[in-house]
């Protein structure tokens, strides 16, 4: 257990610099976005009202008040989120391949540690997961700050104040990242975690059999996908509408856990018996 924590800490610190850069970009870009968009809106309002073409209430009627909802849908806001997502997806691969790269293959030393090799796998998965959840927490912390900046710039009559819950509920992409209930949160991120395990296993296939391994990895991924979605596929085809929603949920949980267990077992086997260091 102690070894596992050491490994997590090690992996975490190895990526920390890039991670802090991602956090920095997100904070700066989103806050600049709020300031820029609020000011644009206010300038437009000033032009129209001071230009004498309409009163402030006419302006609000025609252009509508501003809220975080409008600001969220700009590149200032979604850009850094997309950047973080892409970076973390690359990191899922990078976290393994970096150990094989470089002058002296670091993975050799890693595998020689007096601990079960599967701990390395768990440590890497945990690190990815912490990084993902860390960014989610960051966004949840940023939203109230951004709401506050908006309130500070735009006068009351020209804005709609929304609670964090309203913002996350109303915007579809956010509803995936911040589901309504804790149960859904566990389901969404459980599926994400499962996907990370499957990709890790596919990477280990490649690391074990190289070119042939890519094919094995892809086959493994497809099989995992088919197994996980088997209840839904059955429901849509031969057993049309056979399962009630709650039964479907339980079946999906079972297949999901099976895929996770299968991936861990497979990875353990590959790490202990098949992995190639050179």
């Amino acid at each position: 257990m102690n070894r596992y924590f050491k490994l997590v800490n090690f992996e975490f610190n190895r990526f920390l610099k890039i991670y802090l850069v991602l956090i920095g970009i997100t904070i700066i870009s989103q806050i600049i976005g709020v300031i820029v968009k609020s000011n644009q809106y206010l300038n437009m309002a000033n032009d129209q009202i001071q230009g004498g073409s309409m009163s402030s209430s006419e302006f609000i009627n025609q252009y509508g008040p501003i809220s975080l909802y409008e600001i969220i849908q700009t590149l200032w806001f979604l850009g850094p989120i997309a950047l973080c997502i892409v970076s973390l997806i690359i990191y899922v691969f990078f976290i393994w391949y970096r150990d094989w790269l470089g002058k002296n293959t670091f993975v050799y030393r890693l595998f020689m540690l007096p601990t079960a090799r599967i701990n390395i796998y768990f440590a890497k998965a945990t690190t990815v997961f912490l990084m993902v959840l860390g960014l989610i927490a960051l966004q949840l912390l940023l939203l109230p700050v951004e709401a506050w900046i908006l309130q500070w710039i735009v006068p009351f009559d020209f804005r709609i104040d929304m609670s964090i819950r309203e913002i996350t509920g109303i915007f579809h992409y956010f509803a995936i990242l911040f589901p309504n209930t804790i149960v859904q949160f566990i389901i969404h991120y459980g599926i994400g975690f499962m996907a990370v395990f499957v990709v890790f296993t596919a990477i280990l296939f490649e690391r074990s059999y190289r070119w042939k391994g890519i094919l094995f990895g892809i086959i493994y991924g497809v099989l995992a996908l088919l197994l996980f979605f088997a209840p839904v596929l059955l429901q849509a085809t031969i057993l049309y509408e056979f399962f009630y929603p709650i039964e479907l949920l339980v079946l999906q949980m079972i297949t999901g856990l099976t895929v996770i267990a299968g991936s861990i077992w497979m990875s353990n086997y590959l790490l202990n018996k098949k992995i190639r260091i050179w």
Partner: peptide, 9 residues
Amino acid sequence: KLISIVLII
């Protein structure tokens, strides 16, 4: 560092 990120999450 690790402990603080877990706590924040």
